[in-house]
Amino acid sequence: MKVALTGATGRVGHAIAAHLVAQGHQVTTLGRSALPGMAHVTWDLSQPPPDLTGQDALVHAAFAHVAGKYRGGEGDDPATFRALNLDGTLRLFQQARDVDVGRILFLSSRAVFDGYPAGTALPDGLPARADSLYGQLKAEAEAWLAAQTGLATASLRATGVYGPGAPGQPHKWADLFAGYAKGRTPPPRVGSEVHAGDLAAAVDLLLSAPAAALAPATFNVSDILLDQHDLLAAYADLTGITHPLPPRADPSQVSVMACDRLRALGWQPRGLAGLRPAIADLIA
């Protein structure tokens, strides 16, 4: 399949690119920087969309934000944040639709659920209720896609994503591990996570699934409920560090996403059993 991919130099987009190429797809990256061995078109969200004629699918994982932030990523310029991440996204989707790209996948976020009370169960298809500009823009882009008829679309509502950083970038836990190694004990925290490789596998699955399987358009993407106590315990065991661990956090305050739609299509993320090997890879 010929796949146009935005955001391929980010942590998530890079994992998607690598996975799709490994599975035999012909990937063209759309962004500021090329990746070795892949076709590339220089583009960003502020520009008119590139010509997507001949592409079988578009996977949109690009997002413009203040460095290190998604929620709150608008900084002090919400108007530009909206113009890039909603207007730019919709222009890209419209171009893909107009040249008959058959399938559009959008990397959304669990932030579309942030307006629900803490501890709310989050099944597939739950209506969006965002309380940040980031979540609102993701939800609006989802809604535009879902309204398209005669076009196979899906939005992946992804939770926190862990795994290797993109080339030249640290992984998401680099500062946490470095601080703990120096003897700093972080405060309690628990949250949901999915490995970037498992998110990439979900993208690949939705590229190949029958179009009818994509309705009704949104898919939760989450895997493990991870307490920072357990994360650092695994890190400590692998490194021989013996600093105090943070207390456990209250898991009842986490809104856990069910991923029944993806699992029904055969998605099998690595679970807690895959966490320790993943941490070992990050240390290496």
Rank of each mutant, 00 (worst) to 15 (best):
A39F: 09
L20F: 09
Q95W: 05
A39P: 09
R270H: 08
H171W: 05
L272C: 11
Y116N: 00
L20P: 10
Q26A: 15
L232Q: 01
L214Q: 03
L105W: 08
M38N: 11
R97G: 12
T239K: 00
L238S: 07
R82H: 13
A196Y: 03
Q253T: 15
L84D: 05
Y116D: 09
A258T: 07
V101R: 01
W173F: 15
Q228N: 15
A215Y: 11
G168Y: 08
A118C: 05
Q26R: 15
H14D: 10
Q268E: 12
R184D: 14
S132A: 06
E74D: 06
R11G: 14
D87V: 12
A233T: 08
S46R: 15
L238T: 02
R71E: 14
L176D: 10
D227T: 00
P127A: 07
P216G: 07
L92R: 03
A233M: 03
G73L: 04
L282A: 04
P127N: 02
T80G: 12
G240F: 00
A158D: 05
A57H: 05
A236P: 01
R157D: 01
N85K: 08
Q23A: 15
P188E: 03
G163K: 03
G13C: 14
D124I: 00
F63C: 13
G73S: 02
N220Q: 01
V59D: 01
G37I: 10
A57D: 04
T159L: 03
Q268G: 05
A139I: 08
G68F: 02
T239L: 03
A147T: 11
V112K: 05
L231Q: 00
L272I: 12
D51K: 06
Q169L: 13
D100R: 14
G125F: 00
F177H: 03
A174S: 13
A141T: 09
C259Y: 01
L90S: 11
L20Y: 13
R32M: 08
N85M: 10
P123T: 02
D281Y: 05
E74H: 04
S46Q: 14
A61D: 07
L226T: 00
T9R: 05
A258M: 05
G191C: 09
P48C: 03
A128V: 04
P127R: 00
V256D: 01
T89P: 07
K138S: 08
D76R: 14
T89A: 15
L226C: 05
Q95E: 14
R189H: 14
P127S: 02
A258Y: 02
V59Q: 04
R189T: 06
Q136Y: 08
A234G: 07
P36V: 15
S108K: 11
A174T: 10
T242F: 00
G24D: 10
F93H: 11
S252L: 06
A258W: 02
A166S: 12
H60F: 06
A128H: 03
S255Y: 01
I241W: 03
P277M: 04
L262Q: 00
A143R: 13
A209D: 07
T242G: 08
D51M: 09
A67P: 11
A278E: 15
G119K: 08
P187V: 14
D131S: 12
I241S: 08
H229G: 00
V59W: 02
R189Y: 13
A280P: 04
S46W: 12
L238W: 04
V256K: 09
L238A: 13
V221D: 10
F177D: 02
D227Q: 00
A158R: 03
L205I: 01
